[in-house]
Nucleic acid binder design. Structure first.
Length: 558
RNA sequence: UGCCCGGUGGUGUAAUUGGCAACACACUUGACUCUGGAUCAAGGAAGUCUAGGUUCGACUCCUAGCCGGGCAGCCA
C-alpha cells in the first residue's frame, strides 16, 4: 500500500484534491503544469526534495509538466555554482525538465514591459522615499501606513522616471517603483509593495544589462503566468503574499495560476534553513555543503542515501498545511528499506581484535558467502579464511554480561560463513592489561554449508582474514545536533560535538578492493556504508550511511 | 494587540466529504534466524484543543474561546 509505482496508488493530499477538482471542472482545459522555483543562492536540502517530489510528482501523475525555474532576481546573492548544483541534485533525484529550464531573468524585459503598462494604468509609481522612510510610512502590524508623497505623480512623470531608472541615471537605492494598492491594508504586503529597486550588480545571466531588478512578488507570479503554470505550489510563508500575487495578475489581465501553500519539512536533529546551513559551512562546523552530515541533497548523496529512499520518504511524510517535525528515524527507515534489498553484503571489522585459531592449518581456504540473502540473483562470492583473523573488539567479552551470546572465554560462537570456534585463551598486555589477542580452537566438522554444520550456537560474528585484508578508514556519523529541535538563537550550542568519528585501523574483506566512490555495501551486522569521494586505491575510505537496527544495543542499555 | 493559516496516538499522514478513528515510523512482547539484520505475529497508545450548538448521528457543519505558527527586507 505504501509502495508506490507509476501504476500503484497515488499519494493523497489536499493539493491533489484541489487538482482533481480543477480537472473535474475542466479548469485550464485539463492541463496540469507545475514548477520548481529555487533561488540559486545555496544548495538544495531535503526540504527542497519534498517540494521537488511534490511538483514533479504531480506533473508525472497527471500527465502534465513541471518546469525548473531559477528565481534569480537578486544578483547580489546568487551564483552560477548554485545553479549547477541544483540541476545536478534534481537530476540525481531522477527528475527531468527536458528543455524547460527557465530563469526569472529570462523575463526581465517582459516584466519591464508589464511594469510600464501598470504605470500607464495608474497602478504603479516611482517613489523617492529612502529605505528608512519607506519603512516608517509602511506602518506596523497593528497600525495602517501612510501614503507616500510621491504616490500621486502623474503617469508621464512616472514613465519618465522609471525609464531613467532603467537607463542608469540614478544611483543605487535612490528610487523604487511601487505598486499603488492600499497603505491601510491589514495585510502589510499590500501597502504599496516595491516592484523594482535600483541595484548595480552583475547578474550571472544578464550581466550588466540591467541596473534595476524586480522583487520576488513582482517577478514570481508573472513568471508563473508567462510559463502557463496552472498550480503554483509554495510554502506557507507565502500565504500572506497570495493577495498580492493575485492582484498583479488581475491588473495585468494575464493567465492566472493558482498559488497553493503547504508546510515545509522540518526534520528532527538538524536545521533546514539555507541561512543556517550556509553558516555551518562558512564557520567550518562541517567540511562543506556536501558534508555527509548535512541535510543537503548533495550531503545525503555523499552519505550514501539513494534517490529512491528519498522519494519514498517524501511519499511517506505526506503534504499538509500544519507545522510538522518529522522523526529522522523515518528517513533512516526509508533508507534501510531500500538498501536492505539492494546492497551487497560484505564483512568488515571496524575495531580489530586478533584471533588465532590454534588448531587451524597454516593455509588459506576459500569460503562461499552469499552476496545478498534478500536477492538470490545477486549471487555469491569467495572469501579467504585463515588461521589468523580479526573480529570486532565488541564481539569479545572477557566477562560476558547477561544475554551476551558472542565470544567469551570457554564459549563458542560461529564465524559467519566459516566454522564454530571456541575461546581457549586470552592474551593481555603486561603493562596495560589490554587484551591483545584471543586464542581459539575450531571444530572442522562445522564448516558452513557442510552436513555437520547444523550444530547450533547462539551467536554468529563477522571476521576478516589478517593476511587478506584491506586497510581502510571508516567515518562514522552521528546526528549533527544533540537536540530534536535546534531552534532559537542559541542553535549552535546544541551542535553535537561527536557527530563525526574517524576510525583509521579498519580491516575490510579483500573483495572490496577497487570499490568506487558512491558504491554502497552492507557491512554485515554493522550497517550500510559507501565509498567516500576522498577514497583512493591506496587509502580506501568509507562512510557509514546508517547503522543496522541494533537490538543488542537496546538490551545492553536497559 | 491587526491580518492570514493551522490544531487527530510519542511523530507524521488518513478517514468513502455527516456514519461511529486507519496506515506508517517509534515503542513493547513473542516466533524464526549462520547478520542480535531481514522477516512474521501480537500488543499498548488518540476518542480527534476546549465549551456550547445543529443533527438520529460531528474529526468533519455553526458559534465563542484557548493554543501554536507566519507577516512590518530596496531577501526569496
Amino acid at each position: 500500500m505504501d509502495e508506490k509505482n507509476i501504476d500503484g496508488p497515488k499519494p493523497v493530499n489536499f493539493i491533489r484534491e484541489i487538482i482533481d477538482e480543477d480537472l473535474k471542472m475542466n479548469k485550464n482545459s485539463g492541463r496540469v503544469h507545475t514548477r520548481f522555483p529555487p533561488e540559486p543562492n545555496g544548495y538544495l536540502h531535503i526540504g527542497h526534495a519534498k517540494s521537488i517530489c511534490l511538483n514533479f510528482g504531480i506533473a508525472r501523475d497527471y500527465y502534465g509538466l513541471c518546469n525548473l525555474r531559477f528565481d534569480d532576481t537578486n544578483p547580489s546573492k546568487e551564483e552560477l555554482e548554485y545553479v549547477e548544483s541544483i540541476k545536478e541534485d534534481v537530476r540525481w533525484l531522477g527528475f527531468e525538465w527536458q528543455d524547460r529550464e527557465y530563469y526569472a531573468s529570462d523575463y526581465f524585459q517582459q516584466l519591464y514591459d508589464y511594469a510600464i503598462s501598470l504605470i500607464k494604468k495608474g497602478k504603479a509609481y516611482v517613489c523617492d522615499l529612502t529605505g528608512e522612510e519607506i519603512r516608517e510610512y509602511r506602518g506596523t502590524l497593528t497600525q495602517p501606513g501612510k501614503e507616500s508623497p510621491y504616490r500621486n505623480r502623474i503617469v508621464e512623470e512616472n514613465l519618465d522616471l522609471f525609464t531613467r531608472m532603467r537607463n542608469g541615471e540614478f544611483p543605487d537605492g535612490l528610487r523604487t517603483l511601487r505598486a499603488k494598492i492600499d497603505m491601510t491594508s491589514p495585510n502589510v504586503n499590500m501597502r504599496d509593495p516595491i516592484m523594482y529597486r535600483i541595484l548595480r550588480a552583475t547578474h550571472h545571466r544578464t550581466g550588466d544589462n540591467w541596473c534595476i531588478y524586480p522583487m520576488y512578488d513582482w517577478a514570481h507570479g508573472q513568471s508563473d503566468s508567462i510559463e502557463g503554470i496552472t498550480h503554483s505550489i509554495c510554502t506557507l510563508e507565502f500565504e500572506d503574499h497570495r493577495p498580492l500575487y493575485d492582484w498583479f495578475i488581475e491588473q495585468l489581465g494575464i493567465h492566472h495560476p493558482q498559488q497553493i501553500e503547504f508546510a515545509r519539512l522540518n526534520l528532527s536533529y538538524t536545521v533546514m534553513s539555507k541561512r543556517r546551513l550556509l553558516q555551518l559551512v562558512e564557520e567550518g562546523h562541517v567540511t562543506g555543503w556536501n558534508d555527509p552530515r548535512m541535510p543537503t541533497i548533495t550531503g545525503l548523496r555523499r552519505r550514501g542515501y539513494t534517490p529512491e529512499s528519498l522519494l519514498h520518504f517524501a511519499d511517506r511524510i505526506g503534504v499538509a498545511k500544519r507545522e510538522n517535525m518529522i522523526d529522522v528515524a523515518l528517513l533512516e527507515d526509508s533508507l534501510r528499506n531500500d538498501l536492505n534489498k539492494r546492497a551487497m553484503r560484505v564483512m568488515a571489522v571496524l575495531r580489530p581484535l586478533k584471533v588465532i585459531i590454534d588448531n587451524y592449518p597454516d593455509t588459506v581456504e576459500e569460503l562461499d558467502a552469499v552476496n545478498n540473502p534478500e536477492d538470490p540473483a545477486m549471487g555469491s562470492r569467495k572469501i579467504p579464511f585463515s588461521r589468523e583473523i580479526y573480529i570486532e573488539q565488541d564481539d569479545f567479552r572477557e566477562v560476558p554480561p547477561n544475554k551476551y551470546f558472542r565470544l567469551s572465554p570457554g564459549n563458542e560462537v560461529r564465524l559467519r560463513y566459516a566454522y564454530i570456534i571456541k575461546c581457549v585463551k586470552v592474551v593481555k598486555d603486561d603493562k596495560t592489561g589490554e587484551i591483545v589477542e584471543v586464542h581459539c580452537t575450531y571444530d572442522p566438522e562445522t564448516k558452513s554449508g557442510s552436513s555437520q554444520s547444523q550444530r547450533k550456537v547462539k551467536g554468529t560474528i563477522h571476521w576478516v582474514s589478517v593476511n587478506q585484508a584491506l586497510n581502510a578508514e571508516v567515518r562514522l556519523y552521528d546526528r549533527l545536533f544533540s537536540v530534536e529541535d535546534p531552534g532559537g538563537d542559541d542553535w549552535k550550542n546544541s551542535l553535537n560535538k561527536n557527530s563525526l568519528e574517524i576510525l583509521n585501523n579498519c580491516r575490510l574483506e579483500i573483495n572490496l578492493a577497487g570499490a568506487k566512490p558512491e558504491n554502497r555495501y552492507q557491512f554485515e551486522r554493522l550497517g550500510y556504508f559507501c565509498v567516500d569521494y576522498d577514497s583512493s586505491i591506496e587509502r580506501p575510505i568509507f562512510n557509514r550511511t546508517v547503522s543496522l537496527r541494533d537490538t543488542w544495543a537496546k538490551i545492553e542499555k536497559s
